[in-house]
Amino acid sequence: MGALTLSQVTKSFGSTDVIKGVDLRVEDGEFCVFVGPSGCGKSTLLRMIAGLEDVTSGDVAIDGARINDLAPAKREIAMVFQSYALYPHLTVRDNMGLALKQAGVPKAEIQAATDKAAAMLSLAPLMERRPAELSGGQRQRVAIGRAIVRRPKLFLFDEPLSNLDAALRVQTRIEIARLHRDLGATMIYVTHDQVEAMTLAHKIVVLRAGKVEQVGRPMDLYNDPDNTFVAGFIGSPQMNFLKAGALGLRSDTLGIRPEHLEI
């Protein structure tokens, strides 16, 4: 219930190719994190999965069914945005219930679903407020609540925590991990934060300039990177690179992680 497959997916804006042939499989219930330098196409790929951008070529499929031409609302996905994107004119309850209302779900059911999500995120006392009357952290929780209420097959998060302060970020990260455990849904998560990527992910996808560099479990990427780009990108502080010839070795480059050095 929620396995995603991308096959040779590409995206061009006019003459610029932004995504250059991505193959990826995310298993049902998996937590998959996209990382990569700014401008490498993480958000674009996520928006293509959501149906907010057309796919130039290739196929996007959920549970084996091709969804390239399906409207975003029909894909059984939910997305949480960096800027929260709450509807300013609706209360927290109506923000969370809007998708169900649009789908024609009976009122009592919507009420039950929003109450349940509110309880999971401790939003119950805020249900009748409008977004303008909430703090940043509360808004992000409402945005997450809005995603939960729809019971999607697939959750998409685009840097959901980057507008929060450090303490709140840790707390919300734990909350997202707990939600993933409780709901068992497939989640795809874009982040710049190494700690978020390493702690949340079952599977990390490293992207560079619209191509997948490596896919794997966090520790596999850390211990066994396929190339110097992945080696340099995963891990903080960054890996040191030396000319291998300087040490009398035959290969090109030698990488040493700072945390493995002892003085």
């Binding site: 907010l52 609302a73 509807y87 809007l98």
Partner: peptide
């Protein structure tokens, strides 16, 4: 993002 959130919500 707001418009896109609306599209996803149908």
């Amino acid at each position: 993002d707001l418009k896109n959130a609306g599209r996803i919500d149908g």
